[in-house]
């Protein structure tokens, strides 16, 4: 007789929601059943998203660190005497790490809503073209219907590890941009023998750097604020 653990899962549901967050970072995982015979079209849709990150629709808003889509056709079979699990449907897994800007575990619900709002505004076409292949996708699409759809298929709980949990993607990109600029400055400054000139150049560089905009999400920084 199978043991029923549903009481355990009900009991741990609020905890599982909290576990989506580590520091200010939130990990959203969704497992959506794909409509019958839509998996190939969904794969083609995903393959048409620009592969260069800066051109991705996810780069249209600054909150996402990483995101992935996997189409699951069947479950793995690890060999006898294990049982073979056969799925009747194909599934879409979406997992992303995004910024909430706060470390308050009580705000996990509103954090997700805020992210989905930005996503909804930044990439409505892609939301339709990707999740439109999934069961239950709301049509016509509204923000609240999209938020409810995501929450219905969200998986929580477990152990979410983050190496820099308190830094936003924007902060990471800014720091990486400044790192590249400073390296350029250090190389150039090796030619300066006059100490007063070095000091003046450093503070001019700091000013130029402060005025320089952070490159967009998904970009690889090539421009320099250091004058030749």
């Amino acid at each position: 007789m199978a043991i029923n653990f549903s009481w355990f899962y009900k009991l741990t549901k609020p905890l599982n929601r909290i576990l989506n967050k580590n520091g200010q970072a939130y990990n959203l995982t969704m497992l959506n059943p794909i409509k019958k015979d839509h998996a190939d079209a969904l794969r083609t849709t995903l393959a048409k998203i620009p592969v260069v990150d800066v051109d991705s629709p996810l780069a249209n808003f600054p909150l996402t660190h990483f995101a992935r889509f996997n189409v699951i056709d069947s479950l793995p079979f690890v060999g006898a005497p294990a049982l073979y699990d056969h799925l009747q449907n194909q599934y879409l897994v979406f997992s992303c790490v995004f910024d909430t800007g706060n470390t308050n575990w009580r705000s996990v619900g509103s954090d997700l809503d805020a992210y989905l709002k930005q996503m909804f505004e930044a990439m409505p076409t892609e939301i339709n073209s990707i999740w439109g292949h999934c069961v239950d996708f709301p049509e016509p699409l509204t923000l609240s219907a999209f938020q409810d759809f995501v929450k219905k298929y969200q998986i929580g709980g477990g152990f979410f590890f983050a190496d820099y949990p308190n830094n936003t993607a924007e902060e990471a990109r800014r720091a990486l941009f400044e790192q590249k600029q400073f390296i350029d400055f250090v190389i150039k400054a090796q030619e300066i023998s006059d100490h007063a000139q070095l000091k003046a150049d450093f503070y001019q560089f700091s000013k130029n750097l402060a005025d320089a905009p952070t490159p967009p999400p998904g970009s690889i920084f090539t421009s320099s604020v250091v004058k030749e």
């Binding site: 393959a47 990150d53 991705s56 660190h65 990483f66 830094n167 720091a175 990486l176 400044e178 790192q179």
Partner: peptide, 24 residues
């Protein structure tokens, strides 16, 4: 395998990010 993968700072490894934050 991944059908689509996005990275907000594709030019950097984990160590680069941590080092850049420290440097800043």
């Amino acid at each position: 395998d991944t059908d689509y993968y996005y990275n907000a700072y594709p030019g950097a490894a984990t160590t680069d990010v941590k080092a850049a934050l420290y440097l800043k």
